[in-house]
């Protein structure tokens, strides 16, 4: 199962901090997952239609949308960071 995390305004807009779902059969990369999430429509559609405003981490490391994904990965979506 993929464990997907959402932070900051993504979590607020999606109404959830995380979810688990089976690795989609044809999903090989973060981009494939984004395409699947966007296809849900609603807030998912609105948010994932603009991936340039989102950052991603795979297994707690910053990654690009080209990064490969595998079953049991932890994938986090969040806005650009604003700490410090």
């Amino acid at each position: 199962m993929l464990h997907i995390l959402y932070f900051a305004w993504l979590r607020d807009r999606l109404g959830r901090a995380d979810e688990t779902l089976p690795l989609p059969a044809d999903a090989r990369s973060v981009q494939d997952l984004i395409t699947q999430l966007r296809a849900r429509g609603g807030e998912y559609g609105a948010i994932f239609a603009r991936p340039e405003q989102i950052r991603v981490a795979v297994n707690q490391r910053f990654a690009t949308v080209a990064a490969p994904i595998a079953a049991n990965d932890e994938i986090a979506f969040f806005p650009p960071v604003t700490g410090g």
Binding site: F7, A57, G83, G84
Partner: peptide, 10 residues
């Protein structure tokens, strides 16, 4: 820290 650590401010 400001650009590479995953913190968010509201």
């Amino acid at each position: 820290l400001k650009t590479r650590a995953p913190f968010w401010k509201r």
